[in-house]
Design a protein around this nucleic acid. Structure first.
Length: 924
RNA sequence: AGGCCCGUAGCUCAGUUGGUUAGAGCGCUACCUUGACACGGUAGAGGUCUGGGGUUCGAGUCCCCACGGGCCUACCA
């Protein structure tokens, strides 16, 4: 039988085929009744604002690695996918599209606009789903959710109504961040602070009934039109005499009081500050303390309002210029200085936000934050990397109420009705949802005002912050508020993996909401996830954040097409050290594409030789390991060859490291270890080692070798599968012994095999490898024809070492391209050939006439210098009594042993060096 | 203003509890197209871990300071 596969691994066709098959066969559908411990995870729902980017890819890769690993390890897993309606984000995208058609959402009207966003959702959602399927994410598509679908609106209603009844959600007129472009309030988190070079204008306010002025400093002169006081520090002697007086507000000619408030910083500016309660958060607080009027001098789009008098209609920046001009003309502009300060801009559209007083809905945070802080402080939800716990707790500590209402059209409508007669608010009676024209609405809206019984009711026009529904995601997606089987089985989820950039936006809110809303007694059953892993941000090769405007974004789909999804996944995994951002470069991806090719070709070698295998009398069925989980080796005459003992020992070790690394989100370590096991141990050594034995005359020995080769290979494939699902799936199906297999995704991950660890085998193998390397080294130095087999001499005083070498000549000779190796007991002196020495052996190849004495002398000098330095430091250490008395005995002992070995080696090298120098001297 | 992270080979980065000669990938040098693989093989060169101080028998690893870079939180106009 012959099984040919192409020489180079071409992932494109293979990946597409398997991605499609996995999806169509619903391979990763979760079954709550399945046996085994549960591993559940909710996908952070991508926003429907376009397509998958590299950040998603990293996140999905990490989740997929863990999910596949757990699944193979016997867990019954659920990975629940879905998408987020992304209120402000999606609305922003669609508005931009409308703008290209010369339209505004106001022109379309609310219903038509919503229809347009739904269209967009279909398109964008499809793209994302298609991409995720193509990238092989092993989630359960039968459970896909969308935050704005009826079932999830129901959860939103339930959450809102409960919090409302408990008084945790309230409505009121407060200072909020207003985005004049988006025309909505946004939360504190959606405001970015940017340092900007600005000015500080010093303005004279005439004191009423006197010739005196009081000078105030401001960065925003245009807001002076809304000033309702001037404040000074109560203890500021400069202003004591003005207490209780009034100033005449310039340009407006309104009399406003001078008030004393210890908020005022005496050091800043003039120590007197204008107070604009409607346009500054501090002034707002101060205004409430002193019962000052709040005069909003702006409109929704940040133009000056009617209250601004003659400036009405001007844009806020134009008004600023005009006002400064007018003040200067009146001689009231004292001076202007440069002043850099932080300005808030809208996270979405980068417009400067306007602090404004308006009527909004808020959620009280303090009561929710207490328990949310506790579960992290008490390690009920450990956060990895750990330093984020401090950041999280700090934020919880000084949390502010959350403005949850948005003046948007895309989102969950607030389930409150306002009475036209008395103004009272009546909530929906319950959280039932009905579909009207395909859109989910509260089914139990009130027919009468709860206060006056009036029937002129209108639902609140605001929608909820998109993060309100995201905050319910881990349980709303499982059927909450119903007590479904999914909720009982999969909640709390096992883990949340998210970017650290949404720790407050999302992760923290899920914790608060889960703890408060899920109806369970024990706190550890109410948390939304048992652990929280915050992954890094993917950056460009120069460490810059990827952004469309910079033009440095990489499209994961494009890379996947070009180099293969597996190569990209492996790159992301191997670079994903916790807490470190990833600088992604194409060269790096190439090297892991090469790795995929290496695996492919190792398989090719195995398949290539099936004829020989059958000639050795092994049936294909017999190639399968007798116990797949243990990846048990075959024995020949009750014994195992050293190579086999060694590779199975390595396999057991590597398997442990990988499991432990994945347990702790050390993806880079796991990937690194499997890479070097496969390429180094398996390909470079094991395969090369067994090659000569495969066609051995002893058919049984050959058979055992073959079986073990296949056994290790298939175990390696299973270790690799979480990282490279496509390649390993494809090769699994090509394995002759696994004909008819369903999917490697459901084969067992190699289990712990402590009994296979074999320190002797590893030590012996290390020595043999050292000998081979020494021989190659000599060959290179003597510039021997690489193909020419040559005789060498070997000396070791230890009989065990000699026996080991003699027993493994069939391995050593071909790998070192030697014709023979003469073994003797007497260590060589330094003459008669090119020599490599270690503490345990000497290896010598006769010179011929080819040696480059100068090069050899240089090498030896360098080597002896290094050793001399090393020995010196060791000698000092050992001579130090404090070291001997305080360091652990084991450390001292080890040092003594290595010291002795090094000393012997050093002596050898010195002798050789001296001898060569003499020889060189005599010929010169 | 407060906090966090980073500064290790030419480049991009690893280096969990402090303990032999500090690693990887790419790049570089020399040789090799050997029936798995040139997306390959073999052998090499190349860092004293930003600087200074401290703790310790022992520090890239812990502490302090400085310099350089990044990020987050913040109601000082």
């Amino acid at each position: 039988m012959q099984r040919e596969i192409p020489k180079a691994y071409e992932p494109q066709e293979i990946e597409k085929r398997w991605a499609q098959a996995w999806f169509v066969e619903k391979l990763f559908r979760a079954d709550p009744k399945a046996p085994g411990p549960v591993f559940s995870i909710a996908l952070p729902p991508p926003n429907i604002t376009g397509s998958i980017h590299i950040g998603h890819m990293l996140e999905h890769t990490q989740i997929d690695i863990l999910v596949r690993w757990r699944r193979m390890s016997g867990f019954q897993t659920l990975w629940l996918p879905g998408m987020d309606h992304a209120g402000i984000g999606a609305q922003f995208v669609v508005e931009r599209q409308l703008a290209e058609e010369g339209l505004t959402r106001q022109q379309l009207g609310r219903e038509e606009f919503e229809r347009r966003v739904w269209q967009w959702r279909e398109q964008s959602g499809d793209t994302i789903k298609r991409q995720m399927i193509r990238l092989g994410t092993s989630c359960d598509w039968t459970r896909e959710r969308f935050t704005l679908e009826p079932a999830l609106y129901r959860a939103v209603l339930e959450a809102f109504l409960r919090l409302y009844r408990e008084g945790l959600i309230y409505r009121g007129r407060y200072m909020v961040n207003w985005c004049p472009r988006c025309q909505t309030a946004i939360s504190d988190l959606e405001v970015q602070h940017v340092e900007r070079a600005g000015k500080l204008w010093y303005i004279r306010y005439p004191v009423a009934g006197s010739k005196e002025h009081i000078v105030v400093a401001t960065t925003r002169p245009e807001t002076m039109l809304g000033d309702t006081a001037v404040a000074v520090h109560p203890d500021d002697e400069r202003y004591q005499h003005l207490a209780g007086k009034k100033v005449l507000l310039p340009l407006v000619n309104r009399e406003i009081p001078i008030i004393a408030d210890d908020f005022v910083d005496r050091e800043f500016g003039t120590g007197a500050v204008k107070v604009t309660p409607a346009h500054d958060p501090n002034d707002f607080e101060m205004g409430r303390r002193h019962h000052l009027p709040e005069i909003d001098v702006m409109t929704n789009d940040a133009r000056m309002s009617e209250a601004a008098g003659k400036y009405a209609g001007l844009d806020r920046y134009a008004a600023r210029e005009k006002i400064v001009e007018d003040l200067a003309a009146l001689g009231l502009l004292d001076r202007v200085t440069d002043h850099t300060h932080a300005t808030g801009v809208c996270d979405r559209c980068k417009s400067e936000i306007e602090p404004r007083v308006s009527v909004q809905w808020f959620c009280k945070m303090k009561p929710l934050a207490e328990e949310a802080a506790r579960v992290v402080r008490d390690k009920l939800i450990p956060i990895v990397p750990e330093n984020w716990e401090g950041v999280y707790l700090d934020w919880m500590e000084r949390i502010h109420d959350w403005c949850i209402s948005r003046q948007l059209w895309w989102g969950h409508r607030i389930p409150i009705w306002h009475c036209a007669d008395c103004g009272a608010m009546t909530p929906a009676r319950d959280s039932r949802v009905e579909l009207v024209n395909g859109r989910a609405q509260a089914a139990s809206g009130p027919e009468q005002c709860g206060a006056c019984g009036g029937s002129k009711l209108a639902q609140d026009t605001d929608v909820l912050d998109t993060w309100f529904s995201s905050g319910l995601w881990p349980f709303s997606t499982l059927g909450w508020p119903d007590n479904t089987e999914d909720l009982r089985t999969y909640y709390p989820t096992s883990l949340l993996i998210s970017g650290y950039d949404i720790l407050f936006f999302w992760d923290a809110r899920m914790i608060m909401m889960g703890l408060h809303l899920v109806e369970r007694v024990k706190i550890e059953e109410r948390i939304p996830f048992h652990r929280l892993y915050l992954h890094a941000i993917v950056r460009d090769p120069h460490g810059l954040k990827m952004s469309k405007t910079r033009g440095n974004v990489v499209d994961p789909l494009e890379i996947a097409e070009k180099h293969g999804t597996d190569a990209l996944r492996f790159t992301l995994a191997v670079m994903a050290a916790p807490g470190t951002d990833i600088a992604l470069s194409e060269e790096r991806i190439l090297s892991y594409r090469a790795f995929a090719n290496k695996i492919w070709n190792a398989a090719r070698f195995l398949f290539f030789n099936l004829e020989k295998i059958e000639a050795a009398g092994v049936t294909l069925e017999e190639l399968a390991a007798p116990d797949i989980r243990a990846a048990a080796p075959y024995q020949h005459k009750g014994e195992m060859a050293l190579t086999d003992r060694w590779i199975f020992s390595r396999l057991a070790a590597v398997r442990d490291v990988i499991s432990d690394a994945l347990e702790h989100f050390r993806f880079h370590e796991a990937a690194h270890v499997i890479y070097h096991f496969f390429w180094g141990d398996f390909c470079d050594w094991y395969i090369e080692w067994v090659k000569p034995r495969l066609g051995a005359a002893d058919r049984e020995a050959a058979a055992a070798t073959w079986r073990n080769l296949f056994s290790v290979f298939e175990a390696a494939l299973r270790l690799l599968h979480p990282f490279m699902p496509f390649l390993t799936e494809d090769l699994w199906h090509k394995l002759p012994q696994r004909a008819g297999a369903k999917s490697i995704a459901f084969e067992p991950f190699p289990g712990p095999q402590p009994a296979r660890r074999d320190a002797d085998a590893e030590r012996q193998m290390a020595l043999l490898q050292e000998i081979v390397v020494a021989a190659r080294n000599l060959r290179a130095e003597l510039k021997l024809d690489p193909k020419k087999k040559i005789a060498a001499e070997f000396a070791a005083s230890d009989g065990g070492v000699r026996k080991l070498v003699e027993a493994n000549l069939d391995f050593v000779l071909p790998l070192a391209t030697l014709s023979e190796l003469k073994v003797s007991a007497d260590r060589f002196d330094s003459s008669g050939g090119a020599t490599r020495s270690s503490a345990q052996f000497d290896l010598r190849i006769a010179y011929g006439d080819a040696i480059d004495v100068k090069a050899e002398v240089a090498r030896l000098r360098k080597e002896t210098d290094r050793l001399a330095k090393d020995l010196e430091s060791k000698r000092t250490r050992l001579a130090d009594d404090t070291f001997r008395s305080r360091a652990p005995a084991e450390v001292v002992r080890t040092l003594e042993t290595t010291m002795a070995e090094r000393q012997a080696e050093y002596q050898k090298l010195r002798d050789r060096l001296a001898q060569l120098e003499r020889a060189a001297g005599s010929t010169a």
